[in-house]
């Protein structure tokens, strides 16, 4: 099984972190992984995106051109990457910031009001973790426990107190996506 993932949004939404956590968690689970960011001027204030591959096979190209899943965190990301989802693939849309509906019929689309859920949790910055929770629940690419373990490594001991919040965000994202009916 090979998960070919595109995560996109604007700078500051924690796009790169989402991808790194997935790659890290995949590595912890003994899988082959790669994380490839967009880099350059577009990172500064514009859209940011990264490609993540989690696979049982060695990763050939780290570039995702046909995604098994796309997480679109803002409107320009949806416009740019809806077409990259492979037939039968998954498109997660942050409906808090994207008022547009997906146009594709041949893929699974879930709308997650990630910022609203994050606000309910008291910290809008965990919107990325909400969507990540939805993704994990849908795909089982890696376990939420591995993501949390990765997050501990990334945040370091000084930010250990943020772990429960992030755990909760993953959980709420997973719950929300189960209620999701396609279209």
């Amino acid at each position: 099984m090979t998960h070919q993932i595109i995560i996109a949004g604007f700078g500051g939404q924690g796009i790169m972190l989402m991808g790194q956590l997935l790659a890290y968690a995949g590595m912890l689970e003994g899988k082959n992984v790669s994380w490839l960011p967009s880099y350059g001027p577009e990172m500064r204030g514009g859209t940011a995106n990264c490609n993540v591959i989690i696979s049982d096979e060695p990763v050939a190209s780290p570039i995702v051109t046909e995604a098994t899943a796309v997480m679109a965190m803002n409107r320009p990301s949806l416009d740019k990457f809806e077409g990259a989802v492979m037939r039968g693939g998954l498109l997660l849309i942050n409906s808090s910031l994207i008022d547009k509906k997906a146009s594709r019929e041949d893929i699974e689309v879930c709308y997650i009001p990630a910022n609203e859920i994050a606000d309910q949790l008291g910290n809008s910055r965990v919107a990325n973790m909400v969507v990540l929770g939805s993704f994990l629940a849908k795909t089982g690419a890696v376990s939420p426990a591995s993501v949390i373990e990765s997050l501990k490594k990334v945040l370091g001991p000084s930010k250990e107190h943020l772990i429960p919040l992030n755990e909760e965000a993953l959980k709420r994202g997973a719950e929300r996506v189960r209620e999701c009916v396609n279209r």
Binding site: Q20, A23, M27, N32, V33, S34, W35, L36, P37, Y39, V59, P62, I63
Partner: peptide, 10 residues
């Protein structure tokens, strides 16, 4: 190349 420098792998 830029890709190899920027990407992450185990």
């Amino acid at each position: 190349d830029g890709m190899l420098g920027q990407m992450m792998e185990p």
